[in-house]
Design a protein around this nucleic acid. Structure first.
Lengths: 190, 190
DNA sequence: ACCTGAACACCGTTCAAGT
DNA sequence: ACCTGAACACCGTTCAAGT
């Protein structure tokens, strides 16, 4: 129990491990942007110049890899989203949030599918939960101000965001924007 | 040029070929319902009791197989949709069409992705075109009657239908229905 | 005319052996 | 502590050989 560097340790990682991790992240980002978030992990490892086992060592599942890639971006998005209610009117805040998340969720095509399929307990699932919580808070504010109808729920925002992100990737960004616009109008009506 | 049974011929197929085709269709339907339309074709062939080459002989691509599976269903759906404008008021006709197509497009999960990715010239692409044409006609009728706002296009119906089908498969049917309801309300508003 | 199944290419995932 | 790469399982797709 002396030289243990396991989960409790949090010592500095070995220099080569750190470098491999960075290379994997950089190449994964590039490959996922090209081929979508379902792209070949072997190709990622090959491009990063490491063996496939090294990739699995750092990121046991595809979800872990994607979650690591989105970590900083998610934190920024969430921080921004949490301040949104104070910055703008309730209706405008909700709309800004929806449009920002749609754009974010179409960073890699297929990302909406991954988010929706995230297992409970995974990092990506926690991110989903935070995203839903922010949506819920903004909806509550908009509802209280009468900016959206009374029966709109947080899930409706989550649904819209993911459906629009899927549309953006498979059909076209313009069609996705139109869907968002009309659906937000539907949220207001009543 | 005498005994030719090629593309121009249209003679009766051999009895075993006909039976294999039926078996493949039956098993593909079952497997796609279980695992989605991206399921393993080898599993389909195995369950149908034929070699993998036989499957490819009958259906050169996954799209061809899916298109064959949906043929009858599509024809019925399209015939029904074309009569819809005469049967109901313009607004109700459009809503009925959207809800029916969403339900249809979620027969196999992943079907929306296939439809959206259909290559020009493929049978599935033609089906998409017919679907869009019907949506366009119903939108035109609704627009003329003032049942939807003036800037709603046929593509908006196509987008909504596919986004909702994707939602139905990945999230939940209820969330998909809510998305449809709110978006249709958005179509009306203006 | 149709069927078979081996062949090839590619991928996901694990793990014993190295350093 | 981390890396390597062979090993295994599985799939998509083609095509020469059979009937």
């Amino acid at each position: 129990m002396t030289g243990d560097c396991g989960v409790g340790g949090r010592r500095r990682p070995r220099a080569d491990a750190r470098r491999n991790r960075q290379r994997l992240l950089a190449e994964a980002d590039a490959v996922f942007r090209e081929d979508g978030s379902g792209a070949s992990l072997e190709r990622v490892a090959r491009r990063a110049g490491v063996a496939i086992g090294t990739l699995y060592g750092h990121f046991p599942t595809r979800h872990d890899l994607v979650a690591a890639l989105l970590r900083r971006r998610h934190d920024e998005l969430f921080a921004w989203g949490e301040g949104l209610g104070a910055e703008r009117g309730p209706g405008a805040a909700l709309e800004a949030w929806v449009r920002a998340v749609v754009e974010h969720a179409s960073t890699y095509s297929g990302l909406a599918d991954l988010l929706v399929a995230a297992d409970a307990g995974s990092e990506l699932h926690d991110d989903c939960a935070r995203m839903t919580a922010i949506g819920e808070a903004l909806v509550a504010g908009a509802r209280a101000a009468g900016a959206v109808r009374a029966d709109i729920r947080g899930e409706d925002v989550f649904t819209l965001v993911n459906a629009a992100a899927w549309t953006r990737a498979g059909l076209s960004p313009e069609d996705a924007d139109r869907l968002v616009t009309f659906t937000l109008d539907g949220f207001r009506r009543g």
